[in-house]
Amino acid sequence: MILLQRTLKVGLSLLFALGLSACGSDSKEEDAAPCASANAVVAEATFDSLWTNVFSGRCGTCHGVNATGTLGGPDLRTQEAFHANLVGKTVNDYPDWDQAQITLGGCLTTPLINAGKSSESLVVAVLDASAVSVGCTVKPHKDPPQSICISDGSLANLKKWIDNGAPE
């Protein structure tokens, strides 16, 4: 039984990695490489600006209906869906999100976006490798296969937006 679980976990992880190999490639932010460019376009700390400059070309590519590796997870293809499916939600809100259930096992009750508390938001933890731990282990999206990279300024504005209550 243990061998079967281990084999299944490895197989799903490989499928997840293969399915996400193109994720993050539609970057709209001009500072995608290098990440902390001094000439970066920095979004305002508003949801509209963050959606337009940071999230719209990145998240929905991999986090959408029928997306390989994120099947059963939140649909992040539109601005409305992004907000509705992340703010105040946890991995437990997506019980069919198999990959997250495996890779984020210790994070099942940590909010994806915890309005008012960026330091307790999984979205910040996966985008900022230097973020204070949210109490569980996450794989930063800056690493392959996602290779998502946002500027320090945009990351600061994301945190500010969340700390301000993550308003629409």
Score class of each variant (00 low, 15 high):
residue 60 G to N: 02
residue 45 A to V: 01
residue 103 T to L: 15
residue 41 V to D: 12
residue 69 G to I: 00
residue 94 Y to E: 05
residue 143 D to W: 09
residue 94 Y to C: 05
residue 134 V to S: 01
residue 8 L to E: 12
residue 42 V to P: 00
residue 117 K to S: 15
residue 106 G to N: 12
residue 107 C to I: 02
residue 30 E to R: 11
residue 99 Q to I: 11
residue 147 S to N: 15
residue 77 R to M: 04
residue 62 C to A: 07
residue 116 G to D: 05
residue 43 A to Y: 04
residue 65 V to P: 00
residue 48 D to S: 13
residue 107 C to S: 00
residue 164 N to G: 13
residue 51 W to C: 06
residue 104 L to Q: 04
residue 78 T to Q: 05
residue 16 F to D: 11
residue 136 C to F: 13
residue 46 T to L: 00
residue 45 A to M: 01
residue 45 A to S: 13
residue 51 W to R: 04
residue 109 T to L: 09
residue 127 L to R: 05
residue 58 R to V: 14
residue 80 E to Y: 08
residue 107 C to W: 01
residue 148 I to K: 04
residue 96 D to E: 09
residue 30 E to W: 06
residue 94 Y to N: 07
residue 158 L to Q: 06
residue 149 C to S: 10
residue 35 C to E: 10
residue 137 T to I: 05
residue 147 S to V: 13
residue 124 V to R: 03
residue 17 A to C: 08
residue 124 V to C: 04
residue 166 A to D: 04
residue 134 V to Y: 06
residue 118 S to R: 02
residue 66 N to C: 00
residue 65 V to Q: 09
residue 45 A to Y: 01
residue 139 K to W: 15
residue 88 G to S: 03
residue 142 K to W: 02
residue 72 G to P: 05
residue 97 W to P: 02
residue 143 D to Q: 12
residue 156 A to E: 10
residue 10 V to Q: 12
residue 160 K to L: 06
residue 131 A to F: 08
residue 163 D to A: 10
residue 153 G to P: 03
residue 3 L to C: 06
residue 125 A to Q: 12
residue 65 V to L: 11
residue 92 N to W: 06
residue 146 Q to M: 15
residue 81 A to E: 11
residue 41 V to I: 11
residue 139 K to H: 13
residue 99 Q to M: 14
residue 159 K to H: 07
residue 105 G to L: 14
residue 106 G to K: 14
residue 76 L to N: 02
residue 47 F to T: 03
residue 67 A to H: 02
residue 140 P to D: 12
residue 140 P to A: 13
residue 155 L to T: 07
residue 145 P to V: 03
residue 56 S to C: 07
residue 33 A to S: 10
residue 62 C to I: 03
residue 147 S to W: 13
residue 19 G to V: 04
residue 7 T to M: 12
residue 15 L to N: 10
residue 30 E to V: 10
residue 46 T to E: 03
residue 15 L to E: 08
residue 148 I to D: 06
residue 84 A to W: 10
residue 112 L to F: 08
residue 162 I to S: 04
residue 158 L to P: 03
residue 28 K to T: 14
residue 142 K to Q: 14
residue 5 Q to A: 15
residue 108 L to C: 01
residue 140 P to T: 15
residue 59 C to M: 10
residue 103 T to R: 09
residue 48 D to L: 11
residue 109 T to N: 11
residue 30 E to P: 09
residue 152 D to T: 14
residue 131 A to R: 09
residue 124 V to D: 05
residue 166 A to K: 00
residue 93 D to S: 15
residue 76 L to Q: 04
residue 24 G to M: 08
residue 70 T to D: 10
residue 141 H to T: 04
residue 158 L to H: 04
residue 104 L to G: 02
residue 69 G to P: 01
residue 167 P to C: 00
residue 53 N to I: 03
residue 126 V to R: 07
residue 152 D to P: 00
residue 30 E to Q: 12
residue 159 K to I: 05
residue 165 G to D: 07
residue 94 Y to W: 09
residue 99 Q to D: 08
residue 15 L to P: 00
residue 30 E to T: 14
